[in-house]
């Protein structure tokens, strides 16, 4: 079994821990840009879809389908190796961020849409009968309730997007996977490198996972998110 012959070289781990810290920083930074960008794109797409703006509506629809039905790594390869042939040269960093926004945007848009769908039609009708305009109804009645319902989906997307950043090594970004592969290749310290990889991801993702389940509980206690049963 795995057990007895595993002797960790702690000196080695201490020596290279800094590389992991740097790589983790990169992962977090790119994730942050990507998530913020995806949030914005998602919101815009959702608004376009909800307000049914003629031509843009079709484009958004196509974008969502395209981005949801292709893997991030393929999108990255296309951006990183394909785009330069059209004269658009992107650094690996911007490739990573753009790829993440391209992927995340559609997931965020869907998260918002789920929220909007979960608001019962009665709410909309009541608002109209009170004399509210379409815009007022959307901004004051639908959105606040929808956001509360979207929060769990949104949190799940954040974790999903951070996990997806693990493929960035494919476009030569020096992230956690890249460092790990490097150390395995250079020194054959497989156990140490893999252990530090797992620990790094745990340190990044566990707190986010806890926070998101805490938020989820809060939202549920707030009495939102049960509108689906109406």
């Amino acid at each position: 079994m795995w057990g007895s012959d595993v002797i960790m070289d702690y000196g080695f781990m201490a020596e290279y821990a800094l590389m992991y810290v740097k790589a983790a920083e990169l992962t977090i930074k790119i994730s942050a840009y990507g998530i913020i960008g995806a949030f914005a794109v998602g919101l815009i797409c959702c608004l376009i879809k909800e307000l049914k703006i003629p031509v843009l509506y079709r484009i958004v629809q196509m974008y969502i389908e395209l981005s949801r039905n292709t893997p991030l790594i393929i999108q990255l390869f296309f951006l990183y190796f394909g785009f330069p042939k059209m004269g658009i040269v992107l650094s690996s960093r911007s490739c990573g961020i753009i790829g993440l926004i391209f992927l995340g945007g559609s997931y965020m848009a869907e998260a918002f849409r789920t929220g909007i769908d979960s608001v019962p039609n009665v709410q909309r009708e009541s608002a109209y009968s009170l004399g509210m305009t379409k815009r007022q109804t959307f901004l004051r009645i639908i959105i606040p309730q929808a956001v509360a319902t979207s929060v769990p989906v949104f949190c799940a997307n954040v974790i999903f997007l951070i996990k997806e950043t693990s493929v960035f090594s494919a476009v030569a970004l020096a992230d956690l996977m890249y460092v790990t592969k490097d150390l395995i290749g250079l020194y054959y310290k497989t156990d140490e490198a893999l252990l530090m990889l797992v620990i790094s991801y745990l340190i990044i993702l566990l707190p986010i996972s806890f926070i998101s389940s805490w938020i989820e509980r809060r939202v549920r206690y707030a009495g939102f998110g049960n509108t689906g049963s109406v």
């Binding site: 974790i159 996990k163 991801y201 993702l205 566990l206």
Partner: peptide, 8 residues
């Protein structure tokens, strides 16, 4: 499984 990226 949920927390670890599949690539890891």
């Amino acid at each position: 499984v949920r927390i670890m990226p599949q690539l890891v």
